[in-house]
């Protein structure tokens, strides 16, 4: 798990005059499930296509298994891809689609048969060999696409939003299956998605991207609990983001009150952003040394209620299993370690 498989060094890429990837560096270890997460247009798919060899980067290096991939075309890389919308060959049936790469490599018929059978077993599509791909459901097509890629035994599998067109239930099932598959195959996966839940569920490492720049790299727990900036905080899960001032180490000031916190290392009176997750706030009766507000709305969400509290014209989102009434006056309560302080970024509040 420790050997580096892919290393990206100072990658730059522009289309026409817009730079879509800014000087990006990143490495992927062997047997790692890494997710590139970000909104559409953040450069994640472009980055994936650069690794796959479908796009050429303008500057920087892609090092795969110790070798610079600069002059290696897509068809010579030991990397396979599961494309968005799958790109199954419409004129071939399931078997021929999966066997395609093996036939290009001119393996003998028996080996191809065995390998295709194994791959189809792995994606649970035995018995569908002769089906035309157009007659398969979205979920089945996706499995064919995965089988077609992994049958070539790549060292690295690239997945470009492969779950995007599946319905919710199927998507959740596939998340577990993909993770299981990655562990049993023992290869690295790079997974591109804009769905933060998908990223948090499956990955060993999440890379949050925006405008061609990496915002944060970390384990899913770290990304969720310790977002480095306002963008990551708001993109991953729902959150309350408030501007404040770091008076000194372990003392933060916002909403007109001082709070002790667990953060340190900021300049004295440095303006900062504070994030508090909705599930970390507990509502109680109003009190003088607390942030007080009025319940503006309450929505039943199944597992919990989503409660909107108005404080000085600002909305706070609170997740609670206990209902309240609209119009109730309440106070917001949270522990010092639930106040997460982030460096102020100059972007407008999003």
């Amino acid at each position: 798990m420790d050997k580096v498989l892919v290393e990206l060094k100072n990658i730059k890429k522009s289309y026409d005059d817009t730079e879509v990837i800014h000087n990006l560096s990143l490495y992927i270890k062997e047997n790692e499930f890494l997710t590139l997460l970000g909104p559409s247009g953040c450069g994640k798919t472009t980055l994936l296509r650069i690794i796959g060899g479908f796009e050429t980067h303008d500057d920087g290096q892609v090092i795969f298994d110790g070798q610079d991939m600069k002059d290696t075309p897509a068809y010579q890389r030991e990397i396979n891809t599961v494309f968005q919308n799958y790109a199954l060959f419409p004129h071939l049936n399931v078997f021929d689609n999966v066997a395609f790469g093996l036939r290009i490599k001119k393996l003998d018929k028996d080996t191809i048969d065995t390998k295709v059978k194994n791959a189809l077993r792995l994606v649970k599509l035995e018995g569908y060999e002769q089906r035309p791909v157009s007659k398969m459901s979205g979920g089945q097509q996706q499995r064919v696409a995965i089988a077609r890629a992994i049958v070539n035994e790549p060292k690295l599998l690239l997945l470009d939003e492969p779950l995007g067109s599946l319905d919710l239930k199927l998507r959740q099932d596939m998340q577990y299956e993909l993770k299981e598959m990655q562990e049993s195959l023992g290869i690295s996966f790079i997974f591109v998605t804009h769905d933060q839940e998908e990223a948090l569920t499956m990955s060993d490492t999440v890379v949050v991207m925006k405008d061609g720049v990496i915002q944060q790299i970390g384990r899913p727990e770290d990304i969720y609990n310790e977002p480095k900036n306002r963008f990551t905080a708001s993109f991953i899960g729902e959150s309350n983001i408030v501007e404040g001032v770091m008076k000194e180490d372990y003392l933060v000031h916002f909403e007109g009150l001082d709070f002790t916190c667990v953060d340190k290392g900021f300049a004295k009176n440095e303006p900062i952003d504070i994030v508090i997750r909705p599930e970390d706030i507990v509502l109680a009766a109003p009190a003088d040394d607390r942030i007080n507000g009025v319940v503006d709305d309450i929505i039943f969400k199944g597992v919990h209620y989503e409660i909107i509290v108005l404080v000085n014209g600002r909305e706070y989102i609170i997740h609670s299993t206990d209902p309240v009434n609209v119009g109730d006056e309440v106070s917001l309560n949270f522990d010092p370690d639930e106040i997460h302080v982030m460096k102020r970024t100059d972007e407008a509040s999003s």
């Binding site: 796959g52 479908f54 075309p73 068809y75 919308n85 799958y86 395609f100 290009i104 490599k105 077609r148």
Partner: peptide
Amino acid sequence: DPNLMDAALDLGCNYFEGVVK
């Protein structure tokens, strides 16, 4: 599918094979 040619390359075809196959 716009990725069809890329899929062929991904599976080891060169450009000529991708077009023909």
